[in-house]
Design a protein around this nucleic acid. Structure first.
Length: 269
DNA sequence: ATCGGGACCTGCTTGC
DNA sequence: TGCAAGCAGGTCCCGA
C-alpha cells in the first residue's frame, strides 16, 4: 500500500474526476473488506462530492450529509475508469459518476476500508491520529515530546500513527537512513538535535516522493494507470546485502515487530 | 498506560 | 515441476 505519498498521489489523481460530480450508484461486489462496507455508502445516490481531502492515510470524501472514509490498506488502489470497463477479480467497489466514468477500488488483500462518518461527528478511527508530517506542528520537538517516557525502538515509533501519521515501512526506513539514525535505537536515547534531523528527514523524504508520484512496487498505480518513480530513489528499503550508496558497506536487514527493516550499519548509529 | 504478538487476506517468490 | 513456507506498502485488538 500506500503510505502517505501514495495516498496523496491518489487523491490528486482522482480529485478532478470526482469533486463536483454526482454519484449515480454504488456497486459493491465484495463487501467484506477490513470492516464491511458501510451501508450509508452503499445507499449513496444522487449525491454530489463536495470535496476530497486526506488525513493520514485516510481519504475523506465530503457530502452534505456526512463523510466517506476510504483506507487503502496494504494493497488497495483507486482509479477512474469508463463505467463500461469490465471489473477485474479484485475490483470490489465502483462509484458510478454522472460523467460516464466510475471511481473503482481495487484491493487484492482486502485490508482496506470504506466507512461512513455522520456529519459533525469525529470518527473513532481518526480521533487519536497524530500530527500531519507535512504540517506546521511536526518537528523534532514534537517527536521528542511524544517519545517522553517511552521504551521503544525508533523505527516502530515512527510508524505509530498516534505519534505522526502517514509514515509506513518504506518511509520510516528511508527517513532513518537520511537522518543517520539506527532503526533499533531506543527513543529515550535520542538527542534533540537528532530528533530534529529525523523530523526533517521524514518531511523531505515524503515531499520528494509525492513530487515524483510515490513509490510503485508491484501493484501501486496512479489514477491514470501510471507508476510512481520514487522506487529508484530508495536508499535502503529492499536493498539487504547490497552496498550502501553513500559508504559502500553492505545494507543489513533485521525484523522489528513482524516487519523487516533495512539499514546501513556504518551510516546509521 | 505501554508493549509485543496475532489477526485479518491474497498473491508472488523462494527453497526443498 | 510441484508444493509449502515465507514474505509483502497497514493497523486494530488482545493479553501480559
Amino acid at each position: 500500500m500506500p503510505e502517505l505519498p501514495e495516498v496523496e498521489t491518489s487523491r490528486r489523481g482522482i480529485a478532478p474526476s470526482v469533486v463536483g460530480h454526482v454519484i449515480k450508484q454504488v456497486i459493491v461486489r465484495q463487501p467484506k473488506l477490513r470492516w464491511p462496507v458501510a451501508p450509508e455508502v452503499i445507499a449513496l445516490r444522487e449525491m454530489q462530492v463536495q470535496g476530497l481531502t486526506r488525513r493520514g492515510k485516510y481519504l475523506l470524501f465530503d457530502f452534505t450529509t456526512g463523510q466517506m472514509l476510504v483506507h487503502l490498506g496494504m494493497s488497495g488502489s483507486l482509479r477512474v475508469v469508463p463505467t463500461t470497463t469490465p471489473p477485474g477479480k479484485h475490483d470490489h467497489v465502483d462509484w458510478l459518476l454522472d460523467s460516464g466514468c466510475s471511481l473503482r477500488l481495487t484491493d487484492p488483500r482486502r485490508f482496506g476500508a470504506v466507512l461512513w462518518n455522520t456529519q459533525g461527528a469525529a470518527h473513532p478511527l481518526l480521533a487519536h491520529l497524530g500530527v500531519e508530517p507535512l504540517g506546521d506542528a511536526f518537528d523534532g520537538a514534537h517527536l521528542q515530546r511524544q517519545a517522553q517516557g517511552r521504551q521503544q525502538a525508533v523505527k516502530p515509533f515512527l510508524m505509530d500513527a498516534n505519534r505522526v501519521v502517514g509514515v509506513g515501512n518504506i518511509y520510516a526506513q528511508e527517513s532513518l537512513f537520511m537522518a543517520g539514525v539506527h532503526p533499533a535505537r531506543q527513543v529515550n536515547r535520542i538527542s534533540a538535535v537528532r530528533w530534529q534531523a529525523i523530523a526533517t528527514a521524514v518531511r523531505t523524504v515524503l515531499e520528494k516522493s509525492i513530487a515524483v508520484g510515490g513509490t510503485s512496487l508491484r501493484d501501486f498505480l496512479h489514477a491514470d494507470g501510471k507508476p510512481g518513480y520514487f522506487r529508484q530513489e530508495l536508499q535502503v528499503y529492499g536493498r539487504a546485502g547490497e552496498p550502501c550508496y553513500r559508504c559502500g558497506a553492505l545494507i543489513r536487514q533485521i525484523r522489528q515487530g513482524q516487519r523487516s527493516t533495512c539499514y546501513c550499519p556504518h551510516c546509521q548509529t
